[in-house]
Computed example of a mutant assay.
Amino acid sequence: MIDRALAGIISFFVPGLGQILQGESYKGGVLLLIAIILWVLGFVMGPFYGPYFFGILTIYAIIIAINAYKIE
């Protein structure tokens, strides 16, 4: 278990890792897998639709970081 604020910061940069470090391994693994899929889709879609996926990934990272902070 690590500090809640540190888990939130880590989870913002690598979504799901904060949950894994807080002890919720399955949840963190699923969230990390979703982030990887969004990241890959951003690159595969190229310059036309890629920015939309990176925007979605940024919003997703913020939500996941807030979730990692709220874990007791």
Rank of each mutant, 00 (worst) to 15 (best):
1 M>P: 15
1 M>F: 13
1 M>D: 13
2 I>S: 09
2 I>Q: 12
3 D>E: 14
3 D>P: 11
5 A>K: 15
6 L>N: 13
6 L>S: 10
7 A>P: 12
8 G>F: 12
8 G>V: 11
8 G>C: 10
9 I>N: 05
10 I>Y: 10
10 I>T: 11
10 I>N: 07
11 S>F: 08
12 F>I: 11
13 F>N: 09
14 V>P: 05
14 V>N: 06
14 V>K: 05
14 V>H: 05
15 P>G: 08
15 P>T: 05
16 G>V: 09
17 L>A: 14
17 L>I: 12
17 L>N: 04
18 G>E: 08
18 G>Q: 08
19 Q>A: 09
20 I>L: 12
20 I>A: 13
23 G>K: 10
23 G>L: 11
24 E>W: 05
24 E>R: 13
24 E>I: 05
25 S>C: 06
26 Y>R: 15
27 K>M: 10
27 K>L: 14
27 K>Q: 14
27 K>D: 08
28 G>K: 11
29 G>M: 13
30 V>N: 06
30 V>Q: 06
32 L>K: 08
32 L>Y: 12
32 L>F: 15
33 L>S: 14
33 L>D: 03
34 I>F: 13
34 I>P: 14
35 A>D: 06
35 A>F: 14
35 A>Q: 12
35 A>K: 06
35 A>S: 15
36 I>R: 05
36 I>C: 05
37 I>W: 14
37 I>D: 09
37 I>K: 12
37 I>P: 09
38 L>R: 10
38 L>W: 06
39 W>S: 15
39 W>I: 08
40 V>A: 14
41 L>Q: 11
42 G>C: 08
42 G>E: 11
43 F>V: 03
44 V>T: 11
44 V>L: 15
44 V>M: 13
45 M>C: 10
46 G>W: 07
46 G>N: 07
47 P>D: 12
48 F>T: 13
48 F>Q: 12
49 Y>A: 12
50 G>S: 06
51 P>A: 06
51 P>D: 05
51 P>C: 06
52 Y>T: 04
52 Y>R: 03
53 F>N: 04
53 F>W: 05
54 F>W: 11
54 F>P: 07
55 G>H: 01
55 G>E: 02
56 I>P: 02
56 I>A: 09
56 I>E: 01
56 I>R: 01
57 L>K: 02
57 L>C: 00
59 I>W: 04
60 Y>D: 01
60 Y>C: 03
61 A>P: 02
61 A>S: 15
62 I>E: 03
62 I>M: 04
62 I>T: 04
63 I>G: 00
64 I>H: 00
64 I>M: 01
64 I>G: 00
65 A>G: 07
66 I>L: 04
67 N>R: 06
67 N>M: 06
67 N>D: 09
67 N>T: 00
68 A>P: 01
69 Y>C: 04
69 Y>I: 02
69 Y>W: 10
70 K>L: 07
70 K>W: 01
70 K>H: 01
71 I>D: 01
71 I>L: 05
71 I>Q: 02
72 E>W: 04
72 E>A: 05
